[in-house]
Design a protein around this nucleic acid. Structure first.
Lengths: 211, 211
DNA sequence: GAATTTTACTAAACAGTGTTTAGTAAAATT
DNA sequence: AATTTTACTAAACACTGTTTAGTAAAATTC
C-alpha cells in the first residue's frame, strides 16, 4: 500500500514543518512571545491541528530541545581531532560560547528554561543529550588530569565548576546583565570581545593549575 | 492639612501592600504564573486599581528588583568585618550562593529575567544596585591582588569570571539542570551539598593563583 | 457501486492573561 | 448648595493555550 506510506510521510513532513516554524518564531520572538496561533498561521493550518501532532506547547519545545542538543554535541565531537586534552578543553569552551552567542534563544531553551526539563521528568525519560554533553566535558577534564593538570581536584566537581563558569558567562551576556555592568567599566565596546577576554582570563587561571 | 497627609500615607501604604502581595505571589508561584488579577484579589482591590499605582507589571517587578538588590548588597556589607580580602572574597561567594538558594525566585528576578533590566534601560536610569554589587566584588579582587593573589590577571576580567562561575552554579541549580546531570554521577544526594562541594573546588582553583 | 468507517482538519468555545476605557459614588473644594 | 477632584471598579479589548464538537473527503467494507 504505497498510499498509506505516502500519507505517513506527509504526516511526518507536517510534524517537521510545525517544528521548523516553531523554531523560527522562537528564535525570532522568544518562547513566551510565540503563540500556537502564530505557528499555525505560519504553516497555514488551524491552531487545533498543531495539537494533532504535538500534545502541547511543551512537547514542541522538548523536540527543539533535542535538536538543539544534537547540534551542540556535534560542535563538540569535531574537537576529537584535537589530541592534547587541555587544548581540546579550551576549544570546547570556545565552541560552547560560540554556540551560545550564535543561538541565544536555543541556548536558553537548552540550559535556562525549566519547561523542557520538566517535560523530560514527567515522561520518565532520562536526559540523554544533556548527560552526553557533560560526559564529554568530564572525560576531557579527566584526560587533562592524566597529563598533569588539575592535580588533587575532583574531576566531577571541577567539571561542574567549569560548566558553571561557561554557563554563567553565556547567560549573563544573553540576558544583558553583563552589558549593564560592563558599560564604562571595561574599555571594550563590543561585548562579544569582552566575553572572549573574560574567557581568556578564566583559561589563564586554569592554566596555572598544572603544579 | 493633616487629612491630605494621612491620605498620602494611605496611598503609600497601598503601594507597599501591592508590592508585598506581588512579592509573596512571585516567590510562591513565579513571575509568569502570577497574574495582576491574583495580586488584586490578595489585596482585595480590583485589578484596575493596580494600574493607578504601577504603570504595568514590569514596574512592579522593577520595584521588587530594587528591594532584592538592597537585600543582596546588605548581605555583602556585613562582610566588611573580614579584614583579609581573600577570606572576604570566599565569604562573599558563600553569601552569594546562600542568597540564591534561600531566595531562588528573587535571584531569578535580579539576574535572569530580562524585563526588569529593560525597564531600567527604558527609563534611562542606570543600574545602581547591580553596579554597586559588582563594585564590591571588583574592589575585593583588587585587594586580593594587593596581597599577592591573582598576579598578572586583569581585575575586571577576573571579577567577571568569578561572577560568572557563581551565577552559573546558582542558575544551573535553580533551573534543575544541575540536578539532572548530577543524579548517579555524584554520590551527593543533597544538591545543596553538591553546590557547596563544587564551590570549594572552585575556591581551591583560585587558591592556587598566589604564585 | 453503495454504505460505512476512518482520516485530517477546523470553527468555535472555554478559561485564562495584561491592560484600557468609561463611569460612579464619595470626599474635598468652591 | 454646586462643582470639582479623588479613589476606585465593571466591563470590555485583544490576546494566550487548549478542548470540543463537527465536517468534508478519503478509505474500507459489504
Amino acid at each position: 500500500m504505497g498510499v498509506t506510506e505516502r500519507k505517513e510521510r506527509h504526516k511526518e513532513d507536517l510534524k517537521k514543518d510545525i517544528l521548523t516554524a516553531a523554531k523560527e518564531l522562537f528564535t525570532q520572538k522568544g518562547y513566551e512571545s510565540t503563540s500556537i496561533r502564530a505557528i499555525a498561521e505560519k504553516i497555514e493550518y488551524s491552531p487545533a491541528t498543531i495539537y494533532l501532532y504535538y500534545k502541547d506547547k511543551n512537547e514542541i519545545v522538548h523536540a527543539l530541545h533535542q535538536d538543539g542538543f544534537r547540534l551542540l554535541v556535534s560542535h563538540f565531537e569535531v574537537l576529537n581531532t584535537v589530541s592534547n586534552p587541555f587544548e581540546r578543553l579550551k576549544a570546547m569552551g570556545r565552541a560552547y560560547i560560540h554556540f551560545a552567542m550564535q543561538n541565544p534563544d536555543i541556548y536558553q531553551l537548552l540550559f535556562v528554561m525549566k519547561e523542557p526539563l520538566e517535560h523530560v521528568a514527567n515522561c520518565f525519560e532520562d536526559w540523554h543529550e544533556g548527560d552526553r554533553a557533560f560526559d564529554i566535558l568530564l572525560k576531557t577534564v579527566s584526560e587533562c588530569q592524566g597529563i598533569g593538570y588539575f592535580k588533587g581536584l575532583d574531576a566531577t566537581m571541577l567539571s561542574f565548576s567549569i560548566w558553571s563558569t561557561m554557563h554563567g558567562m553565556c547567560t549573563l551576556r544573553i540576558t544583558g546583565h553583563l552589558g549593564h555592568v560592563a558599560i564604562a567599566r571595561a574599555n571594550q565596546l563590543d561585548l562579544d570581545h569582552l566575553i572572549g577576554a573574560a574567557y581568556e582570563t578564566y583559561v589563564a587561571t586554569l592554566e596555572n593549575l598544572t603544579t
